[in-house]
Simulated scan of single mutants.
Amino acid sequence: MSDRSSKAYWAANVRIILISLAVWFLCSFGMGIILRPMLMGIHIGGADLGFWMAQNGSIYVFLVLIFVYAWRMNKVDKEFGVEE
């Protein structure tokens, strides 16, 4: 892999990681803590949405992010010719 291609590969990797972290932060910290007072009127399974996101929703989002990250990185690996 050339130096230019290597830098582009790592830039794509870091971009995917930062987007994943931003989504995870918004769902866990944002909806579970910061926006909780605004979400108290919406109920899921007997609990308000803010509490549900803090306890369950952020875990589900994290699991989805793991699979999305693996899928996207497989595409990036194939694009740059470094797949397994």
Rank of each mutant, 00 (worst) to 15 (best):
G81T: 08
M31N: 07
A8L: 11
A12V: 04
F25N: 06
D77G: 01
D48G: 02
S5K: 10
L18P: 02
N74W: 04
S2I: 02
I16W: 07
N56I: 12
L26C: 13
V23H: 12
I34Y: 06
W71V: 02
V23N: 13
K78N: 07
K7N: 05
M40K: 13
F80P: 00
W71C: 11
Y69W: 15
G30F: 03
S58V: 02
K75F: 03
A54S: 11
M38A: 11
I33Q: 09
N13Y: 13
W71K: 06
A70Y: 09
I19F: 06
L63T: 05
S6V: 05
I66L: 15
M38V: 04
L21T: 02
G45S: 14
L21K: 05
I16A: 13
I17M: 11
K7P: 00
L63N: 12
Y69H: 15
R4T: 04
F67Y: 14
E84L: 11
L21Q: 14
S58Y: 03
C27Y: 02
N56P: 01
G32M: 05
V82D: 05
V82Q: 07
L39K: 02
G45P: 02
M40T: 03
C27V: 11
G57Q: 14
V68G: 04
N74E: 06
Y60S: 07
V82I: 10
F29H: 12
Y60V: 07
A47Y: 10
G45H: 15
F51E: 04
R36I: 00
S2Q: 06
R36E: 05
N13P: 00
I59H: 15
I34R: 03
M40E: 09
I42Y: 11
V68S: 14
F62N: 15
V68E: 09
E84N: 09
N74C: 03
